[in-house]
Design a protein around this nucleic acid. Structure first.
Length: 954
RNA sequence: GCGGGGGUGCCCGAGCCUGGCCAAAGGGGUCGGGCUUAGGACCCGAUGGCGUAGGCCUGCGUGGGUUCAAAUCCCACCCCCCGCACCA
């Protein structure tokens, strides 16, 4: 292990010294630009990110060996909330953050500095770079940068992009619901909440106003306005305190929470007083849908801190209501306590207003019975029943007579119309609320607020989508099967709220109280890599970040304006302007972006949109590759499961090459499947890599055998066809398959070759094998490959050597098939041997010449698409064969149709088997005779088929 | 709910698009053998069941179907994972 690490350090140093990964424009030389989405730098890299970026490196190294001028740059993302949130939590003394930082290897005395978000950015960009370098990535580090106002040059670039979008009319203003913390006065994203509240977002709901005779409004919150026709009563919590508030000029009674929420959604709310729930019980209110008078009753399931705290009761269609009503009926004494005549409740019966095919009575009743629910305290069961009833009735239900004008409509349609109708009369309104309580990290209860004046990117514009589709159509996708996902994403992408407050990022140039949100500042930054060499080191080039005016970018990226003029006005030297323009022109478009599958619906789709908005068609991205996530030992990485591995740990345990190797073997093909990293694979990779270096050292230049043997042809064919297959797989970014073919299968072939050649390879083949094998693994285990390359006494680096070219003239499918017959026949011979006691001799009979002719005829028929039975009839029309022989061959083909794909020309099979006779003798410990059927002595010779010689032990 | 990915032998994992070379590659594990003072590493063999001649039976989530032939194609169902936005 230490030996491997020393090798890695040595070659990383030499690469650095030789600057082989620093790429500059070379007019006339084909280029290849490949990128990895910059990671968010709030923690150290782990195996997950390492996995995807490794695929980028593999593509880069492969293309470099193919002779391309390859640019692989890397930047860092700091935009957004998590870093700010963590720094804040640290300031508040949050133990968890302290623990996380210590786990990441932050020295205790340095902890205080992380109270400043800026320090997080500086610290983790440095640590990421350190890890990635040790990982052996072929990055041009001169183009490194990070985002946010902490990097004014990049901020200038982002501003330019948004000014452009605004010029083109692609941004606009609107309102948007967010989860809001009233104490901290800010939006509460997932990272601002304790974990158990992650992922809960605002949902649409409706308030239906039930009015009492004295004009008090009871705002019942519901997700199913269409059931208003079946309301038997309202529910309030008897113990809760409600507020009386003036809402948009009416007097409402509702929970305090609901009052806050409504106030934040554009309604004027003035709290006038408070009232206990119990005091509301017994009041009569009017159902706005049918003018019926209904009573307010107590229910313990009502949460006054959810929605409005007032619930309309539809026992026929809502399990909670049904069960609460039953509860009440059983306890008349409870009602008496509130001065309600139990007789009234006794008379309340569910009103059925929706019918579902296949359900006679009440679906609710069925569900409640099925789940054995008897009390409203069984929340969990009731919630499950509710989900079931809601979805069944929503998708299959039809409105009944009692719903008047809505009768006969599917529930799906009626829902909208009922709301519309009630809203017009002023009896209903739409609001947003949270389906479950959500607390902010600060401990405050959050609610939904509608943010006004929010800025949107107008992705819904048809003309924009059209261009995005066009760009997609011109792109290579790896794998191609994700194309339909992208098409759908482009189609369904809605306008995107792209600004925030109080987070890291770049300010919106024309409305600086807003900061551009993280996904939105990361859309075309790949273009920035092409010039980052200059802009990130502006002092070396005689300008300052503030010189990067929109005009400068217009010139560099769009070729607009006269360089002399732009230089004079901006203060950026003319030669620098022109150099940046040349870089961009040379490197762009982006050839390949490789990412995890999670970025398909957002970042990658945004990238397409923004490129087509800003750049001319010839600069639109050319390719996207995606891969799944990495699992460790079959499970998602997580600290609690104990299978969380940081890149740093992996490098410590296995070094770079073995870690890379194991990650590739985990499943680094293109696609959406997740890969499974097994530490044991990394363990054995260490040995395997050292083994290859040793093999090269002891075999390079070794003089073995010079004369030609049959098996040499086979191995040369295999070697060259392997190169061909691996090259194809590398092109498709199917790296695991490439490694399996290019290493494991090739090694297997080599072992067979040695066995067949009696341990003596032909000298020139040995040499070529060592070269090819080293080059084929060079992208995967670059350090190991260099070490081997050096051991061969080669000049330069393996990693800049030419990718091996297959010698087509040496690829001979027939030879490969013939040798396969040798391999399969040995298997068969072993199998049969088990059943023969003390055999002395094995007779291998190669089928008669006419059988080959017959099979060729059948194979031709099959190739033209005939079904097997018909094709096999071709045996009857072969010259000079009698009917009986033909018939038995026909039978044999029908029984073993696989021989059709297996047989080789007879002379080759014969030669191969003859050559293998000595091996067979050794392996089976018998004397071996290979004979042609025509002159055969074997009693079983008639069984011989092309591709399947007859075997007989005696 | 909508959309996507998946369910293969003790474990991991190829194959599935383009049906037969599939009892199903390759690892790992286990068992046996070689090497070795021993262990490790390495090499060879075995690893669904039955079978004294290459065969038969069972088998790739479940149940059907198409076909001379299905892990592969079609239909239905069950289960797991992921995305559905303001979040990197």
């Amino acid at each position: 292990m230490e030996r491997l690490k020393a090798v890695e350090e040595k070659w990383q140093r030499r690469w650095r010294e030789a600057r082989i990964f620093e790429a500059d424009p070379e007019p006339g030389r084909p280029k290849f630009m490949v990128t990895f989405p910059f990671p968010y730098v709030n923690s150290l890299p782990h195996l997950g990110g390492a996995f995807t970026i490794l695929r980028v490196d593999l593509a880069a190294r492969f293309k470099r060996m193919q002779g391309y001028n390859v640019l692989f740059p890397q930047g860092w993302h700091a935009t957004g909330g998590p870093i700010v949130a963590s720094a804040l939590r640290l300031r508040q003394g949050d133990k968890k953050i302290v623990r996380i930082l210590l786990e990441q290897g932050v020295p205790r005395e340095e902890l205080d500095r992380f109270k400043d978000p800026e320090y997080w950015v500086r610290y983790f960009t440095r640590e990421w770079r350190r890890d990635l370098e040790r990982y052996g990535l072929s990055i041009d580090w001169r183009r490194e940068f990070h985002t946010t106002y902490l990097n004014p040059s990049f901020s200038r670039f982002v501003e330019w992009q948004y000014l452009k979008l605004r010029e083109k009319g692609l941004v606009g203003k609107g309102s948007h619901p967010v989860v809001w913390c009233p104490r901290e006065q800010k939006v509460v994203g997932d990272h601002d909440r304790p974990d158990e509240y992650a992922g809960i977002s605002p949902v649409e709901a409706y308030i239906i106003k039930f009015r009492s005779r004295d004009g008090l409004v009871f705002p019942a919150l519901t997700f199913r306005p269409e059931t208003v026709f079946g309301v038997t009563n309202l529910w309030v919590h008897p113990e809760a305190t409600y507020v009386i508030a003036e809402v948009d000029g009416e007097e409402w009674v509702l929970g305090e929470y609901g009052a806050r929420e409504i106030a934040d959604q554009g309604h004027r709310v003035v709290i006038k007083g408070r009232i206990k729930g119990s005091e509301l019980i017994g009041k009569m209110v009017e159902n706005p849908a049918n003018r019926m008078s209904v009573i307010v009753l107590p229910a313990s399931f009502v949460d006054p801190e959810l929605g409005t705290g007032v619930v309309m009761s539809v026992p026929a269609h809502a399990p909670f209501d049904y069960v609460a009503l039953m509860d009440l009926k059983r306890r008349p004494e409870e009602l008496a306590r509130y001065g309600v005549d139990p007789g009234i409740v006794e008379r309340l019966e569910p009103v059925k207003l929706i019918s579902v095919p296949g359900v006679e009575g009440l679906l609710v009743e069925e569900e409640v019975r099925k789940r054995g629910i008897s009390s409203q305290e069984q929340r969990e069961e009731l919630e499950a029943a509710t989900r079931e009833v809601y979805s069944k009735e929503f998708y299959e239900g039809v409105m009944l007579e009692v719903t008047g004008r809505f009768a006969g409509m599917p529930v799906k349609t009626a829902k909208e119309l009922v709301v519309e109708w009630l809203a017009e009369k002023g009896d209903a309104l739409k609001i947003y609320t949270l389906p479950r309580p959500v607390y902010c990290r600060c401990g405050a209860r959050t609610h939904v607020k509608i943010v006004r004046d929010q800025w949107f990117i107008l992705y819904s514009r048809r003309d924009w989508k059209e261009k995005a589709r066009k760009a997609l159509a011109g792109m290579h996708l790896y794998p191609e099967s994700v194309r339909k996902d992208f098409e759908r994403n482009i189609e369904e992408l809605r306008d995107w709220a792209f600004t925030h407050k109080g987070e890291l990022g770049t300010r919106l140039p024309w409305d600086p109280e807003w900061v551009i949100e993280s996904l939105s500042d990361s859309t075309i930054y790949m273009a920035y890599y092409t010039i980052a060499k200059y802009t990130e080191h502006s002092e070396d080039y005689g300008f300052k970040p503030e010189n990067l005016t929109p005009e400068v970018f217009d010139y560099v990226f769009l070729g607009e304006g006269d360089p002399e003029e732009v230089s004079r006005r901006s203060g950026v030297p003319r030669e620098v302007l022109e150099a940046m323009r040349r870089e961009f022109e040379y490197w762009y478009p982006l050839d390949l972006r490789i990412s995890g599958k999670d970025l398909i619906p957002n970042h990658l789709t945004f990238m397409i949109f923004h490129h087509v908005a800003i750049f001319p068609e010839e600069k639109w991205p050319r390719g996207i590759g995606v891969n799944g996530w990495i699992l460790v030992m079959g499970e998602k990485m997580s600290k609690s499961k104990g299978n969380f591995i940081t890149l740093r740990q992996a490098l410590e345990w296995w070094g770079a090459d073995a870690t890379r190797w194991a990650e590739v073997m985990a499943g680094a093909d293109a696609g959406l499947d997740d890969a499974n990293f097994e530490p044991s694979v990394a363990d054995s990779a260490v040995e395997l890599l050292l083994g290859w270096i040793d093999f090269v050292k002891s075999n390079w230049g070794r003089r073995a055998r010079d004369e030609e043997r049959w098996i040499d042809k086979w191995f040369e064919s295999r070697l060259n066809s392997t190169i061909k297959r691996v090259t194809q797989l590398m092109e498709e970014t199917n790296f695991k398959s490439a490694l399996v073919e290019g290493y494991y299968k090739l090694q297997e072939d080599w072992r067979w070759y040695l066995k067949r050649a009696g341990g003596e390879p032909r000298s020139d083949i040995l040499k070529r094998f060592i070269e090819v094998q080293t080059l084929l693994i060079a992208p995967f285990a670059p350090h190991t490959a260099e070490e081997a390359w050096e051991a061969m006494g080669k000049e330069g680096f393996a990693n800049t050597a030419s990718w091996p070219e297959p010698d087509e003239s040496k690829i001979d499918e027939a030879v490969e098939r013939a040798e396969q017959v040798v391999i399969d026949t040995l298997e068969d011979a072993r199998e049969i041997r088990k059943f023969v006691k003390e055999p002395k001799k094995l007779i291998v009979t190669v089928a008669a010449e006419w059988k080959y002719r017959a099979l060729e005829a059948v194979a031709r028929e099959r190739a033209s698409g005939k079904p097997l039975r018909e094709a096999a009839r071709a045996v009857f029309s072969v010259d000079g064969v009698d009917k009986k022989d033909a018939a038995s061959l026909f039978q044999a083909i029908m029984k073993n149709p696989e021989v059709l794909a297996r047989f080789a020309p007879r002379s080759l099979e014969f030669a191969a088997l003859k050559d293998a006779a000595s091996l067979y003798a050794k392996e089976l410990d018998v004397e071996v005779i290979v004979e042609p059927e025509e002159e055969g002595v074997s009693p079983r010779k008639a069984q011989a088929l092309p591709g399947k010689p007859a075997l007989y032990y005696e």
